[in-house]
Amino acid sequence: MSNILILGGTGKTGRRVARRLDGARIAARTTGFDLGDPSTWALDGVTAVYLVEPDLRAEPRLPRLVTEAVAAGARRLVLLSAPRAGEEGHPLHAAERAVRGSGVGWTILHPNWFAQNFSEGPWARGIRDGVLTLPAGAGRAPFVDAEDIAEVAASALTDDRHHGQVYELTGPRAVSFGEAVGVIARAAGRKIEYADVEPEAFVERQIAYGVPENVARLLTGLLADLRDGRGADVADGVERALGRPPRSFEDFAAATSWR
């Protein structure tokens, strides 16, 4: 697997992909890789690339990497994207366009909200503190386990049957944030609550934390969509890609350490 390059190889999905592909090359800060510095890319011999943009605040960087990877011999690209990345102005729009126009085999992954956002992502602090505050109201989402995302990615990096596929990846059912927090509280054996906040107040809070306004409004808009009853649809991407149903939120919570 030494000819497979995994961007974000120490991140939420990247390290899970790497665990499934022994010997794959890990592209991360810890290995000297800098997505913003092409001199660090070391693409010689690479035939497949797992593409991740770890910083949505940055100017588009994946299109150039796609071009150089294909020129260096890559023949298979798997992009971790997002459900609304086909829209102009989305931070990953240019990356999707580059992958689709690369001239080689490609697969695009559109995961819904990660279940791991509660355990190792932006909502983990609220879970640890005992109160998760978000502008999602009573909206529901079919949270997808990052293990499922990684399994789909690993398969797409090694099997031509995924070429030209766009996989919408979700869990098996939509749950509200209140329900999700309740499942986690039972698994953790302690009290955890979900608190709703108005979207504009949430935007202002994110900007105060240093998030650029356009990114804060994009992410808040996605949560507000849930609040308005959108984004709860369950998709069949995991089953189409792997031939099995996705893992449930309850299984995710039970398998996670909530210390």
Rank of each mutant, 00 (worst) to 15 (best):
L5H: 07
I6L: 04
L7P: 04
G8H: 04
G9W: 02
G11H: 03
K12R: 12
G14F: 05
R15E: 11
R16I: 05
A18I: 12
R19T: 12
R20E: 13
R20H: 07
G23N: 02
L35M: 10
S39R: 13
W41A: 08
D44G: 09
T47A: 10
T47S: 15
V49S: 04
L51V: 07
E53G: 05
P54V: 01
P63H: 00
L65G: 06
T67P: 02
V70M: 00
A71I: 04
V78P: 02
S81N: 00
R84Q: 11
G86P: 07
E88F: 12
R97E: 12
A98C: 05
G103Y: 08
G105C: 02
G105T: 08
W106V: 11
W106P: 03
W106M: 06
T107I: 02
L109M: 08
L109Y: 03
L109F: 02
P111F: 00
W113R: 11
A115T: 10
N117S: 03
E120L: 09
P122R: 11
P122E: 12
W123P: 09
R125N: 10
R125I: 11
G126P: 09
G126E: 06
R128T: 11
G130I: 01
L132S: 09
L132Y: 00
L132T: 13
L134F: 12
L134I: 11
P135V: 12
A136W: 03
A138D: 15
G139P: 02
G139I: 08
R140G: 02
R140A: 15
A146P: 04
E151Q: 10
S155C: 00
D159G: 01
R161S: 14
H162C: 10
G171N: 01
R173M: 08
G178H: 10
A185Q: 06
A185G: 03
R186G: 13
A188N: 01
A188W: 00
A188G: 03
K191A: 14
K191L: 09
I192C: 07
E193V: 03
A195Y: 06
A195E: 13
D196R: 02
D196E: 03
A201C: 02
F202Q: 08
Q206P: 11
G210F: 11
E213Q: 14
N214L: 13
T220H: 06
A224I: 05
D225L: 01
D225N: 09
L226E: 00
R227N: 07
G231H: 06
D233M: 06
V234K: 02
G237R: 07
E239Y: 04
A241Y: 04
A241E: 04
G243H: 14
G243E: 13
S248T: 13
F252W: 10
F252C: 06
A254I: 00
A254Y: 01
